[in-house]
Design a protein around this nucleic acid. Sequence first.
DNA 1: CTGCATGCAAATAGTTTGCATGACG
DNA 2: CGTCATGCAAACTATTTGCATGCAG
Lengths: 145, 145
Amino acid sequence: MKGEVKNRRDKIINAFKEKGYRITSQRLAIFDILAKSDEHPSVDMIYKQIKKEFPVTSLATVYKTIVAVKELGEVLELGFSDGCNRYDGQKPYPHPHLICTVCKKICDPDLESLEHVTEELRKESGYKIDHHRIDFFGVCPDCQG
Amino acid sequence: MKGEVKNRRDKIINAFKEKGYRITSQRLAIFDILAKSDEHPSVDMIYKQIKKEFPVTSLATVYKTIVAVKELGEVLELGFSDGCNRYDGQKPYPHPHLICTVCKKICDPDLESLEHVTEELRKESGYKIDHHRIDFFGVCPDCQG
DNA sequence: CTGCATGCAAATAGTTTGCATGACG
DNA sequence: CGTCATGCAAACTATTTGCATGCAG
């Protein structure tokens, strides 16, 4: 098991250690939430959740920690211009999202046909495509009717 | 020619008139830029451009006007979390964009295969898909090498 | 021990808003 | 001429930053 990564949480911890970044209880709490939650939490959601079990944490620390996790490529930031960025610590690489415009739930659809789109674009544009951001907005089954 | 819409500018003007919104010289200047520019300008770019020929215009008016044009569905807002939203007055409906990460140029690629993706998603997710936001990031030919 | 991480508060930046004045229709 | 649009400045909000203190390594 030596050096083996069991889960996303450990992956993030290792990335921090390799960089010589310190492991603090605040950071661990943030890693936990990023690694475990599949709801694509916002900074505020993370902050509120941490406050419950660990009341002595500041918003600034949450922000600073997320910046570091981002730098290490261990979280995907879904920036929204209305000031409610969301974070995906489970799949830190670009992938499409499906967003309910009513309950704001965000989930990860499987979209095999997406490969073709990227390929088509690469061929025809002459761009060196690096990453993408693909969001579909609609009303989820729970919020319909 | 009566009532006929010659171009995007007139389309926007008509939309304003139908709503009983007034046509001012500031608004006309903003419509012009939205309708003519294919560079997906930011509010600031619009503001600076207007200032040249029409020095007595305020940023607030640009913002307020764009809000109105958005409400009428005559401009597409490309919101970015880093606070540099861009606007597309030529094609006010959702469509994919190709963004150069070096020079920040934004262009509209043709992507026929995108239809399949939306269809696949509609079928498999159960969501009522309303709109989407699709950005590809990379380095354009001009900025390569 | 040494320096990086924390918490607090102040600073930042894009956008929005309130209000008095001005001009469209 | 009444009402809505404008310009200014202040308010807002998510995020960032500076600095003194605290704790990881």
